[in-house]
Amino acid sequence: MFGRHSDLPLAGDATSRFLPWLVALMVFLAAMAVSGAFAVNEVMSRWDHDVTGTVTVQVLPAGGERAEAATDERVRQAVDLIRAVPGVLAVKALDKARTLALLEPWLGGTDVVRDLPLPRLIDVTVDPDARIDLAEVADRLSHAVPGAALDDHRVWLSRLINLSRTMEWLAIVVVGLIGLVTSATVVYATRTGMAVHHDIIEVLHLIGAHDDYIARQFADRAFVLGLGGGLFGLAMAVPALSALGWAARRLEGGFLPSIGLPLAGYVVIGLLPLLAAGLAMLTARLTVHGALARMP
């Protein structure tokens, strides 16, 4: 690819000189987005693990007359609602006797205790693979059943996980946009190059060059420029990412689990310059083919 013959003096083109800088910036940004997504994914999978298993629903006792019956009704409603959630394996309401038995070591077994308005507990077993949106279930539950609430800590974790999933999607969109911008720039640079060298291209065309003979020369050039720019962008991204990682480790000890990039993350980031160069090459080639198709 590098020693390949070229008849077009593309290496001297002023118009394509900005291309490596742009690709460098794009690869740098993509590296940030990708490592962000991977780091968040790491953290999330650990939190996700904590959330799976069992969840507890607490139902506050109703007041007034016939309090007992009203509380039973709340528990029944909550059980029905939870049971309908996909991914829930088992729902088991602890009746009052069982709740009292659980509390006996602390409160004793007196009649006074028996008459206290105690909250009721519902044990929910969830499928670890189902990735239930607990935050959403908690919202529904508190709206539908007065006094019912899902375990606070876990709902909070679930909300964080939702946020991190959104961030993952955002990273994918960002990388997609970066690809689009790179492509658009390559299209522009290629079109400009073709206009500058129009006479040469026409001569090559007239002496019987296939479109691809011409397209390949632009594609090779775009690949070289893209790879150079991409490697430079990667070289800038590595110290930036190390600095971020170092800063994150200093934060640790708080609620953040240690932030580290998994191996797959390093692989993807390492491939970014090659991906950018490949994208530039493909875009240039298609652009030239499109333009040449209009020649007689």
Binding site: H5, D7, D199, E202, V203, L204, L206, I207, G208, A209
Partner: peptide, 28 residues
């Protein structure tokens, strides 16, 4: 490729040597 053309304005490629200009149809 079965046609050879001598253009009125020559249309040689200015950045190539005489040798490379003549070689062009073969390279293609």
């Amino acid at each position: 490729r079965r046609i050879g053309v001598v253009f009125q304005e020559f249309r040689l490629l200015d950045h190539l040597t005489a040798l490379d200009n003549v070689a062009l149809p073969l390279r293609v």
